[in-house]
């Protein structure tokens, strides 16, 4: 028996995902409509944002393109949660109905097995839009393009995605303790709207809240500083990669702890 290491899990993951994409693409209409749906939602959000900025030249010394950059980064950072961790949204139903038990009998990591079940392709459109916005903002900000800069951005994007996924892990895991946890996820998810704004427009209380309680500042603001404020990096930007790994691990432990507490509702 081989040891079940990262390679083993990745192999299984790609096997499931590639098959899943193949079968999803066979439902072409469904795929096109839902992708367009997400795109329209984002375009509508973007128009609101644009109208606000037509009326103000800057917010708190942040100019239009800087805010645009945050906006684009936020879209990119939300995508992995949307694509890869979407099954968290169904967790409550599975736990409530007792169906969650069916995930407990495979000889692999329970969290991995559960999360790998669903791959949501729709988020890709959102990601593309995010990339487009960032490129556009980057050009207009007249920053130079360096390999190091792009690498730093990719590292920060991964860190941001991990924090976002971690937040949703914890929000979803509340269903192991409470019956009515649906609103927890919805509320927490609504907070992610605020990731699109620079954190210093909020007062101190909110700043602390968004940095350390529900750390959405780590989803966009601090990671983006690696580009927007590269000459004077905030300390929280520097620790963001380590913080994100740690935070995701903690969220995983909480999720698994909840699952171990759980024991079906019988049949």
């Amino acid at each position: 028996m081989k040891k079940r290491n990262v390679k083993f899990y990745l192999a299984i993951y790609f096997k499931i995902i590639s098959q899943d994409i193949k079968s999803k693409l066979s439902y072409r209409v469904d795929f096109i409509i839902s992708t367009m749906g997400i795109l329209f939602t984002n375009i509508a959000g973007f128009i609101t944002f644009w109208i606000i900025f037509k009326n103000f030249d800057n917010i708190n010394d942040w100019n239009y393109y800087e805010i645009l950059f945050l906006y684009g980064f936020s879209l990119m950072a939300l995508t992995p949660t949307q694509c890869l961790f979407d099954n968290n949204w169904n967790l409550r139903d599975y736990v409530y109905s007792g169906d969650f038990i069916k995930y407990c009998f495979r000889p692999i990591d329970l969290y991995f097995y559960y999360i790998s079940e669903i791959f949501d392709l729709k988020g890709i459109g959102e990601f593309m839009m995010g990339v487009g916005i960032i490129v556009y903002a980057w050009i207009n900000l007249k920053y130079s393009v360096t390999i190091l800069g792009i690498l730093a951005l990719i590292v920060m994007w991964i860190a941001a995605s991990l924090v976002m996924a971690g937040i949703m892990n914890i929000a979803a895991a509340t269903c192991f303790w409470m019956n009515n946890s649906g609103y927890v996820m919805v509320t927490v998810f609504k907070f992610t709207e605020y990731t699109k704004y620079p954190i210093d427009i909020f007062n101190k209380g909110f700043r602390i809240f968004f940095s350390f309680i529900i750390p959405i500042a780590f989803v966009t603001y601090y990671p983006s500083m690696v580009v927007l404020n590269s000459h004077n990096l905030p300390i929280l930007t520097i620790i963001a990669p380590i913080f994100s790994v740690l935070f995701f691990y903690i969220s995983y432990r909480i999720w698994m702890f909840g699952a171990s507490r759980y024991n079906g509702t019988g049949t």
């Binding site: 083993f8 899943d20 079968s23 038990i101 069916k102 000889p107």
Partner: peptide, 29 residues
């Protein structure tokens, strides 16, 4: 062990059976 619940399928909803089997082959080595 193997476990079967009458009305709770443990297979991947969108995968054809042969692909589900291939994934299971990997999982159980």
């Amino acid at each position: 062990i193997g476990v079967v619940f009458g009305q709770r399928s443990q297979l991947w909803w969108s995968l054809p059976l042969k692909e589900s089997f291939k994934v299971l082959k990997e999982i159980y080595q």
